[in-house]
Every structure is written in C-alpha cells, then in structure tokens.
Write a protein that binds this DNA or RNA. Sequence first.
DNA 1: AAGTTTCCCAACCGCGGACCC
DNA 2: AGGGTCCGCGGTTGGGAAACT
Length: 263
Amino acid sequence: MGRSPCCEKAHTNKGAWTKEEDDRLIAYIRAHGEGCWRSLPKAAGLLRCGKSCRLRWINYLRPDLKRGNFTEEEDELIIMLHSLLGNKWSLIAGRLPGRTDNEIKNYWNTHIRRKLINRGIDPTTHRPINEPSTTEAASTISFASSIAAASKADEKKINSNNNGVFVVKEEKNPIQEKCPDLNLELRISPPSTSSSSSETLKTGGGMMSLCFTCRLGLQNSKECSCCSGASSGGIRISTRTKSGYDFLGLKAGVLDYRSLEMK
DNA sequence: AAGTTTCCCAACCGCGGACCC
DNA sequence: AGGGTCCGCGGTTGGGAAACT
C-alpha cells in the first residue's frame, strides 16, 4: 500500500521559515482562515508543504500563542496532566491556553523531566524512582486505568503529593492487585453512582476539597456536590490547581467527552 | 579568543485515524 | 466494503545559541 507523499518534495523549501514566508502565511490565513492545508501553500504562493505550513501556523504564528517562560503553576499543571494523560501532548496543550503541544513536549523533555528526576521521580511513571513495583499497596496509575477502574463502583482514593506523584490507594481487591494495569477502554463520563465524599487534593501548598464534577471544570453545575450540594460521586481525580485552571478545560461547562476518549 | 560540548527548540517524519468516494 | 486522501499527533532530528574548557 503505502501513502502518497503529502506534497511535491522536489519543489518545496525546508528548514527555517523566512520572514517573508511567515508574512505570506499570516496574510493568507487572515484572509481565508485555517484549513485545507494541502492546497494552502500553492494558494498562498509558498514553496512549502501543507504540513509545514500547518505546523508553522499552529506552533509559531497563531496570534493567541503565549510566548515566554512557563510559570511554576504551568509546570505543576503539566506534571499533573502528564501523570493522568501520559504523552498526550495535544490533550495537555488543550488545557493550557496559549501553549502548543510541541512547546509543551519540548518543555517536558528539556526541563520537567529533569526536574522530576531531581525530585527522585520517574518522569514516565510518576513513581518514586526507588520504589519497588507491582506488589505495593499503593500503585501509580495511568489516566486510562484510573478512569476505567474508577468507573467501577470501587471506592478509591487518588492522592497527590507535592512532587507530582499521583497515587491510588486501592481498597482490597485481589484481582486488581494482581493486574493493576488493565488495558481497559477509556471513556470519560459523568459519575454513575453516588457515594459522595469529596477528594482532598494537595497541590504545592494548598489543600482543596473538590468533587469530581468540579475537577472537570463544571463548578456550580447541578452535578456538583461540593458547590451546589447536589449529590455526585464516582471517580475522584485531582484536576485543579490553586491557580484555577479548569482541567479538561471547560469552565464554560461544555465538556466534549469525545475529545477525551482514549484507547 | 578559539574550539568543543551541551542545551534548546523549531521543524521534519512517519504513522494512525477520520473522512470521502 | 475498501481504497485513497487529508489531517493531526507524537517521536525524532538538526542547527543555532549558550556554556564550558
């Protein structure tokens, strides 16, 4: 089979973009909007492939980009999101306004990895580096397995410590103890049952008590148990920082579950 | 000051999934 | 149903800048 090349490579520029190319791309997108990247270069008079144009626009030229250093709060949020989502940079970027997946990925690889290692934390698993695996009573979880596990009615507690380690303390369940990392299909959905005890989240200096709904950015919604008093329950995921980021990004109260589906 | 090494980040590459015919 | 095309994602690379010798 094989794929056809995305563009006519022989007649395209590669490497760093010039000011003139940037200007052309910006002018074209301002006039016609984003989209149809394949035909854009020709239409805009650029000797670039569509992918290259898309990347340049998304990662560098977009007007809503926040350039400059990451704040400490952004650091912690990235660590937290990475512990939940893994290398899903686009999802992580979606929760950090003005940041791109590429930027976050680079930042992770150059700064945060080192930072976590210095803290004695494995940046891949978010586990303490010296911690023996598997038979521990507490095990670090991936986002996928946490949600899948939580979708069962089992009561679990997900805690975080100051170092960006997120730990699930499992109630006794012999099956799960043997198979802690089931590769179950993930689908985020509203909590199905009500056993409402709010989760305490400790993030770098503050303790918060939030229900799952709030952590999805749906404060004051009817599902919220800690804001409105309505019952809610089910899974407990640490998703907010004291800075008020709306994890899963939707302060407006619109949650696109599809965008969070994972394998 | 010059050469070398390390760091950082923009850009590229290849793959998978969605969509269309 | 299946093949082709396009888009978006994540991993990797290349080269310029900064730090070090």
